[in-house]
């Protein structure tokens, strides 16, 4: 499997297109992830795409920690959405590129403006788009006060993550370092905290 990737350079003069073996391999891996949640196939995909996503991230975001986050977020989408990839509609590289570009675009916008609108799915619509986003709940600034009260009722470990990410605007990686815990733990605590918050906000709306 590895040899075909390593020899990619030889094809360069013939055409700019990805050599057929490589693109077939990428499609196979994506298929195995989609159908069997194949961890080996995902690792292959990760090893192929991660360094290049990181390079793209550094060129756009100008920051290594953010670029690593872009890698993690993009590859998470690949893992979760692999079943939505259709080889008949385009190359695997094109599909991953759009996930990466969209994630990066939304990240840039969130860095610059305090609002939390994710526009990329509207700007680059895809008929395969499906809602996975965790953050669309927080658009309304009037809700802030309510959110604050809910945050204070979270377990301390989750509170510190939420506050670090949303108030101090630390990257998840900075936060992991600061708290001395793995990045994965930061991400899972954040997810847990956000889903709890959503639940509580929803409950209060019924009062």
């Amino acid at each position: 499997m590895h040899t075909s990737i390593k020899t990619f350079g030889k094809y360069k003069d013939d055409s700019i297109a990805t050599p057929p073996q490589l693109s077939t391999e990428l499609c196979c891996w994506l298929n195995s992830v989609a159908k069997q949640r194949d961890k080996k196939a995902f690792t292959e995909l990760f090893n192929f795409f991660a360094p290049k996503i990181k390079r793209f991230g550094i060129s756009k975001l100008n920051n290594e920690a953010m670029a690593n986050e872009l890698v993690q977020d993009t590859m998470s989408l690949v893992w979760k959405k692999a079943h939505l990839f259709e080889a008949s509609k385009g190359a695997a590289t094109t599909w991953v590129y759009t996930l990466m570009r969209n994630t990066c675009f939304d990240t840039l916008r969130k860095m610059k403006h305090k609002d939390n609108i994710s526009l990329s799915d509207d700007i680059w619509p895809s008929d395969l788009t499906e809602e996975l986003s965790d953050d669309s709940e927080f658009k309304d600034h009037l809700l802030n006060e309510k959110v604050l009260r809910c945050i204070d009722s979270l377990p301390l470990a989750q509170q510190s993550i939420i506050k670090g990410v949303y108030y101090q605007e630390l990257t998840q990686e900075q936060l992991a370092k600061q708290l001395g815990i793995p990045l994965g733990t930061v991400k899972s605590r954040l997810r847990l905290a956000l889903s709890k918050l959503k639940q509580q906000m929803g409950d209060r709306d019924h009062d």
């Binding site: 990619f8 990181k54 550094i58 190359a91 094109t94 991953v96 590129y97």
Partner: peptide, 28 residues
């Protein structure tokens, strides 16, 4: 659609990484 394919090819071209960008490789 065409431009996206081309941009994707370019972003995920293997040999550029191998020859020009050893730092990024190591950093990962």
């Amino acid at each position: 659609n065409q431009l996206t394919e081309i941009a994707a090819e370019k972003a995920f071209e293997q040999d550029i990484m191998d020859s020009f960008d050893p730092c990024t490789h190591q950093a990962f």
